[in-house]
Design a protein around this nucleic acid. Structure first.
Lengths: 100, 100
DNA sequence: ACCTCACATAACATTGCGCTTATATACGTA
DNA sequence: TACGTATATAAGCGCAATGTTATGTGAGGT
């Protein structure tokens, strides 16, 4: 699975947003997604690991998950060339509005 | 389907990159994806339409597809809060390198 | 040694996506 | 009107992703 498919899943985006605040243990993340069972969350975490979006560090019997700095950048790199599209569009829109 | 799933599909990302260069007819886009049949491309275009990533304009019996300026911005809006992660990381890395 | 807690993996069912072939729609032209 | 061209939709199939329950693994505690 690639990064795009990884972030296409709403629950995984939720996990990412939680890890953006701070590191959390697997158990905390499981509690944060009450609609899912523990194995389901564990699987999502595995996918986030394999796509390089998060990293794990053992702490006794816990596992601490953290967001990896360069994971989401791959998506940002892809979107960068297209950014001018809405920039130009917004610029033209503003210009049009101020000309009235 | 939402924007994230729409962009998760490689063929659809290819279509987006083609439309970023210039508008194209459905037929041109079909020719640009030789591994797919015409209905398959038509379906992808439908999804890109429904998610607001492209727009269509009829031209006789042809349909001209164009990239919509604000479609991909929804992804950019999502990624923006996380951007500081790799920026901070890069800054720290550079600082570390120049200190040697 | 035994049990419990935290987490991962296995096995399996269900669902949804993407593909194909076949068909419909709609415009253009003779 | 009749026919070809351009595109969309329908029907059906295979596969991969997501969920579940059941089980494995390994670290702590008594």
């Amino acid at each position: 699975m690639d990064v795009f498919e990884a972030v296409a899943e709403p629950n995984r985006r939720h996990l990412i947003s939680l890890l953006a605040e701070r590191e959390r243990t697997a158990g905390e993340l499981v509690d944060s997604l009450p609609t899912l069972t523990q194995p389901a969350v564990s699987r999502h975490l595995r996918i986030l690991r394999e796509t390089g979006l998060v990293e794990v560090r053992p702490d006794g019997q816990r596992r601490i998950y953290a967001l990896k700095p360069d994971g989401l950048q791959r998506i940002d790199d892809w979107i960068t060339p297209y950014r001018r599209f809405w920039r130009d569009h917004l610029a033209a829109l503003e210009k049009h509005l101020e000309s009235e």
